[in-house]
């Protein structure tokens, strides 16, 4: 049997509808992207923990696939999570893209794959 990659737990979580990150069993430091070992304390023991699914847009760009230019572009964002992590995602409602916007992760199909996408949250919602 092939060994699992460090990131496989994340995609297994996505397929169950969960947004997960690694948490070090020894020092409780969260990390993303996944890594084999905790850079803070050196432990290789970790657990997958659910994230709140909230975030804020730090920056965004318009991404056009260079050889499929007739397809819709994607608004690719850096997202700061309240847990102190950062993720790359793409925005389902790009017309609302603005730095600092509150977003919520939404696990949804894109191009036949389930991915952790984001949608902006209206103020007060």
């Amino acid at each position: 049997m092939q060994a699992k990659r460090d990131q496989d737990f994340f995609w297994e979580g996505i397929d169950r509808g969960e947004l997960l990150a690694q948490k070090c069993d020894a020092c409780a430091t969260l990390r993303h992207p996944p890594a084999a070992r905790c850079a803070a304390c050196g432990s290789d023991e970790w657990s997958a923990v659910p994230l709140s699914g909230e975030g804020r847009i730090l920056a965004f760009i318009d991404s056009v696939h260079p050889s499929r230019r007739d397809e819709n572009s994607r608004c690719v964002c850096l997202v700061d999570l309240p847990e102190g992590l950062r993720m790359v995602s793409s925005l389902i409602d790009p017309e609302n893209a603005v730095n600092g916007a509150a977003v919520r992760f939404e696990i949804a199909d894109y191009d036949g794959q389930m991915l952790p996408l984001i949608r902006t949250v209206e103020a007060g919602q």
């Binding site: 990131q7 260079p66 994607r74 690719v76 790359v88 995602s89 794959q113 991915l115 996408l117």
Partner: peptide
């Protein structure tokens, strides 16, 4: 699937 290319960073 991965953390960058799948989400639109392909170049």
């Amino acid at each position: 699937r991965g953390f960058h290319k799948s989400l639109g960073l392909v170049t």
